[in-house]
Nucleic acid binder design. Structure first.
Lengths: 223, 223
DNA sequence: CCTGCTCTGGAACGGCGTTCCATGACTATT
DNA sequence: AATAGTCATGGAACGCCGTTCCAGAGCAGG
């Protein structure tokens, strides 16, 4: 017999996978990655930790589901323009921006890159590289580079966000990096000294786009 | 008064930061990232977990020190050739290869990219981009892209190694990915189907180099 | 009303990072 | 040689964590 003929809807505040994942996202956003524990989550949902395990197998699955939710929502709103390069920038930026809002997504993506939503990124970006004129034989390498650059930036953004939980701490954190860099011997590390000042004033989003353009420029000659 | 006029050398088997870090590297290499606990480490060193804290402040510092040791060793053996692009490849490969041998370095680098050894990477790679003819104004973006691509590949290599602890499991793991990819509708995901086969046979090191060349090719027009 | 299922929530388990502290090992001073 | 004082050790203990267990609440069909 069908185990669930119609939706049970036992009570109004019933637990569900969706409600749990939504609550986990809230916890991650508001209090950071370390705050997501089954106890805190159970408390937030006014239940016991055991109840959660009825809907979610373990913490890895919970983090994957949360990442998946955020990522697929971010990818849903991409407008496919006429210029393939612009569309590639839009794809990359939608992931980048999602990670700036939810840094824990970057951490998770670096740890578990094969999320289902990433398949979406592969499909869409390879289509654009194809439109760009990249031959089939080079497609894989282009898309790989695109995704790995994306994941590297994602991880770095997440790591930065971990150190400056509030945006106001940004100058202090950057100053500390500059200080550690310039402490080195300028004779032995001339370029580090040269770049140190740019670290202080750099815009992460702009640097991300500039690096992306390097890859796109490199993909052109691959035609 | 000088607290330590000459080296104490109290006993032959004395604990030391070096011995602890070396032991931690051994544990990480032989049994994986999850096996590194202060208890297991203390057991390996025939001591108590409390003794370790006299030399190392906490687990983060231990992982940083281990990463630093492996990374600076890897960077030490780079021959600076005459071609800047080749030297850049050599720098990137030395990090990539170190991570293939010690996957946990990739995890750590994705979590904490500002290791002291990474300053070495910044210095050396920016010098090579400079030799390549990249103007000072674009140097920062080129080096950033280079490092972020490196870190993205590092994280992905580490993640892959986590799933196939023994090399023999590689085909099975790749087959599982291919299966999950090809399960999707070929009409909706044509490129994923196209790339799926290449995933099975791809060589990570070769793909890494191909992606790197995209960035190097993109950096050339930046002159 | 009873039976059997889904779902709940709190207790319990083993393991973790870290702290605490009594004590051993050694040096410097008398 | 005895003592004082510091460095270093290692095992116990604390508070958390993810996860498992299970008694029982709520509900459906016979």
């Amino acid at each position: 017999m069908d185990p669930r003929p119609k939706t049970p809807e036992r009570r109004e505040d019933a637990l569900s996978r969706e409600r749990i994942v939504a609550s986990a996202i809230g916890l991650l956003d508001e209090e950071g990655e370390r705050a997501l524990t089954f106890r805190a989550l159970a408390n937030r949902l006014s239940t016991g930790s055991g109840a959660i395990y009825w809907h979610i197998p373990d913490k890895d699955a919970l983090l994957s589901a949360a990442t998946e939710t955020v990522l697929s929502r971010a990818l849903a709103g991409i407008a496919g323009g006429s210029d393939p390069a612009d569309t590639l920038r839009a794809i990359a930026l939608s992931v980048f921006d999602a990670i700036e809002v939810h840094p824990w997504v970057g951490t998770q993506l670096a740890r578990e890159p094969w999320q289902p939503a990433m398949v979406e990124v592969f499909e869409r970006s390879s289509a654009q590289f194809d439109l760009l004129g990249v031959p089939r034989g080079s497609l894989f390498h282009c898309v790989s580079a695109f995704v790995q650059y994306l994941l590297g930036s994602a991880a770095q953004t997440a790591a930065a966000a971990r150190h400056k939980f509030r945006a106001s701490e940004r100058p202090a954190v950057l100053a500390a990096i500059v200080e550690r860099w310039t402490r080195r011997d300028p004779g032995e590390y001339p370029f580090v000294h040269l770049l140190a000042e740019q670290v202080r004033t750099h815009d992460e989003r702009e640097a991300f786009l500039a690096g992306l353009d390097l890859i796109l420029a490199g993909a052109k000659p691959a035609r």
